[in-house]
Design a protein around this nucleic acid. Structure first.
Length: 480
RNA sequence: GUCCCCGUCGUCUAGUGGUCUAGGACACCGGGUUUUCAUCCCGGCAACAGGGGUUCGAUCCCCCUCGGGGAUGCCA
C-alpha cells in the first residue's frame, strides 16, 4: 500500500495542505503504507527551491516522515515533476498518435473572444473544439504562420465516470459537462497538473490518493486520461477543505495559516497534529487530546467527517496550552529557552534547575511558548517596573504604607532565611491592612503587576536580595 | 450559469430507525479553590436547516427547497 503527499512549492506550507499531509501520514502509519513525497513544480514561474525547502522543514517539524521523495530518492523517482518531462512527453506523443489528443492553435486572445461572445455567458464557457478536427492543410497553414500550439485532450461524449471516493462514496460525473477538451500541454511545452498527476500516481504505484476536496471535480479528467493511456487507476479519498470563520476557504485574512508561523509563535508540533487530526474526526472514547500513536491506532477513513470544518484558532490555542502543561518539565524548559532568549534573557547563564522552577510555575499561564516572554520578568528581572495598574496601586495611600513598612521590615527584621515566610505577616501587622488592600500593593511591589503566581511562591523563588531590591526600588520611586 | 460535494449546539464533533429529555470538547456564563490572575474542580446555556414522503415510529432512509462550499485556468 502506498500513499503520497504532493505539494507545489509556490509558498509556505499552508495549514490546509498540512492537514492533507497529516492525514496521509497517519493513514500510512496506521496501514503500514509507504509514503511518497512528490513535488509538483510545473508552475515554473511560481515554484521555488526555497519554498520546497521550507515545506520539507515544516513537514519534518510536524513529525511527518516519508519514505521516498526528492531528498531521499526511491525506485520510482525522480520525485520532482520538473525532472520528469521526458516521461510525460512520451505519453503525449502516444495520445497525439492515437487521436486522444490534438494540437490546438487558438491563441489566448481568440479564446477570450470566444468566451465573451456566444451567449455572453463567460461562466458557462466550454472550449468549442475549433481545433478538434483540423485538416492537414489547416494545420500546416497554422504551423507555417509560426503559431504556437497547446495540446488538448479529446474528451469523449457522454461517458459516465464514477469516482469511488473512500470518504464521499461513489460520485458520478458525465464527461459532457467537465468543461470540454482541456489543455494538457502548454504552448511552451510544459504539461499541466490535471494531465500528469495521474501519470505520476500510477507510475509511482500510489494505491490511495488522499487529497483536498478541491480536486474532486478534476478527478474525472484525470481518470479519462488514465483510460486513454490504459493506466491503472488509484483509489481516492477527498478530504473536506478547512474553512475560515466566515466559511470560505481558510486563507491569510482569517489569521495565521502557515505552519512556519505556528512554529515560530510557539505551538508544539504534537498539539498541532493532534488538533488537525481532530478536525473532522473523533476518537472512539471521545477524548480529544491523545497521543499520536493512539490516533494512528484508531484512525479510519470511514470515520472522517464529510463536512468542511472551520478552523478554530482558539481551540488550537487551548489544546497547545494543555500540551505545554503536560510536557515533561525538563523538556518543556528547553523548548521555552529560545523564547526567553528572544525576550532578552541570557538563558545559558541561568541555573537550569532554577529555570525549571520558574517554568514549572509560569507554564500554567502559557498557551503558546511565546507567552512566557511577558511573564518571565516576575522571576528573572532584577526589579519589576510597575505596569499601569500596579503604578496606580502604588501611588495610593495603602500602596505607600505597604512600601514603607516592607522596607523597614525587610531591612531591619528579616534575613534570607526567614523573609519568605516572615514578610507577609510582619508587614500585615505593621500596616494593619488586610485582604486585597494589603495583598495587591505587596504584589505590585514584588512583581510590578496586579496578577500572577502566588506571592509566597514568587518570593521563595526570587530570594531575599531580589525581593529587597524591588522594595527599595518602589520606595525610591513612590515614597521620596 | 453549469457540474459536484456538504448541512446535529456559536465552533469541532458523538449518535443512529425506537435506548435521544440528542452525549462530549472549545468558547461563553455562574460557583468553588487561589485573599489576585491563570491553572484546576463543579454547574449552566446551547443544535438535529425547512417542507414533503417511507414507517407503528424518523436526527438517522428517499425526494424537493433553501443554505454553505468547491470546480469550471496555457494554477496546483
Amino acid at each position: 500500500m502506498r500513499v503520497r503527499f504532493a505539494p507545489s512549492p509556490t509558498g509556505f506550507l499552508h495549514v490546509g495542505n498540512a492537514r492533507t499531509a497529516i492525514v496521509n501520514y497517519l493513514y500510512a502509519r496506521s496501514n503500514n503504507a509507504r509514503m511518497v513525497l512528490r513535488i509538483e513544480d510545473t508552475d515554473l514561474e511560481r515554484s521555488t527551491r526555497e519554498s520546497e525547502d521550507s515545506i520539507f522543514r515544516d513537514l519534518s517539524w510536524l513529525g511527518i516522515r516519508w519514505d521516498e521523495g526528492p531528498d531521499l530518492g526511491g525506485e520510482f523517482g525522480p520525485y520532482r515533476q520538473s525532472e520528469r518531462f521526458d516521461i510525460y512527453r512520451s505519453y503525449t506523443e502516444r495520445l497525439l498518435g492515437e487521436g486522444n489528443a490534438y494540437r490546438c492553435y487558438c491563441t489566448k486572445e481568440e479564446l477570450d473572444r470566444m468566451k465573451k461572445g456566444g451567449d455572453g455567458e463567460a461562466e458557462s464557457y466550454t472550449y468549442s473544439g475549433r481545433c478538434r478536427s483540423l485538416t492537414d492543410d489547416e494545420r500546416k497553414k497554422f504551423e507555417a504562420e509560426g503559431r504556437p500550439s497547446t495540446v488538448r485532450f479529446r474528451v469523449p461524449d457522454n461517458v459516465s465516470i464514477v469516482v469511488n471516493d473512500r470518504i464521499k462514496g461513489p460520485v458520478e460525473f458525465n464527461s459532457s459537462n467537465i468543461g470540454g477538451d482541456f489543455i494538457i500541454v502548454r504552448s511552451d511545452g510544459v504539461p499541466v497538473f490535471n494531465y500528469i498527476v495521474i501519470i505520476d500516481d500510477t507510475l509511482m504505484k500510489i494505491s490511495l490518493v488522499i487529497r483536498g476536496d478541491d480536486h474532486l471535480s478534476n478527478t474525472p479528467k484525470q481518470l479519462l486520461v488514465a483510460r486513454a493511456l490504459g493506466l491503472s487507476e488509484p483509489e481516492y479519498a477527498h478530504l473536506p477543505l478547512i474553512m475560515g470563520p466566515d466559511r470560505s476557504k481558510l486563507s491569510k485574512r482569517h489569521g495565521i495559516t502557515s505552519v512556519e508561523m505556528y512554529r515560530k509563535e510557539g505551538y508544539l508540533p504534537h498539539a498541532l497534529m493532534n488538533y488537525m487530526a481532530m478536525l473532522g474526526w473523533a476518537s472512539e472514547s471521545g477524548e480529544e487530546i491523545l497521543p499520536i500513536e493512539d490516533i494512528i491506532r484508531q484512525i479510519d477513513l470511514k470515520k472522517l467527517s464529510k463536512n468542511a470544518p472551520i478552523f478554530d484558532f482558539q481551540k488550537l490555542r487551548w489544546m497547545n496550552g494543555m500540551y505545554i502543561r503536560d510536557y515533561p518539565l525538563a523538556d518543556i524548559t528547553i523548548l521555552f529557552m529560545p523564547y526567553l532568549a528572544n525576550a532578552g534573557y541570557n538563558v545559558d547563564a541561568i541555573d537550569r534547575t532554577h529555570l525549571e522552577t520558574v517554568v514549572s510555575i509560569l507554564r500554567r499561564y502559557c498557551d503558546i511558548l511565546s507567552d512566557i516572554g511577558h511573564l518571565a520578568g516576575i522571576f528573572l528581572d532584577e526589579v519589576c517596573v510597575p505596569d499601569e495598574e500596579a503604578d496606580a496601586m502604588l501611588k495610593s495611600d495603602d500602596g505607600k504604607n505597604v512600601i514603607r513598612a516592607s522596607r523597614t521590615i525587610i531591612r531591619d527584621r528579616l534575613d534570607s532565611a526567614n523573609f519568605a515566610t516572615g514578610l507577609i505577616p510582619a508587614v500585615k501587622g505593621a500596616t494593619s491592612l488586610k485582604g486585597k488592600s494589603f495583598f495587591m500593593p505587596l504584589r505590585a511591589i514584588i512583581t510590578g503587576r496586579q496578577k500572577g503566581p502566588e506571592l509566597d511562591q514568587v518570593m521563595a523563588v526570587i530570594g531575599y536580595d531580589k525581593c529587597k531590591m524591588r522594595i527599595e526600588y518602589c520606595h525610591e520611586h513612590y515614597c521620596s
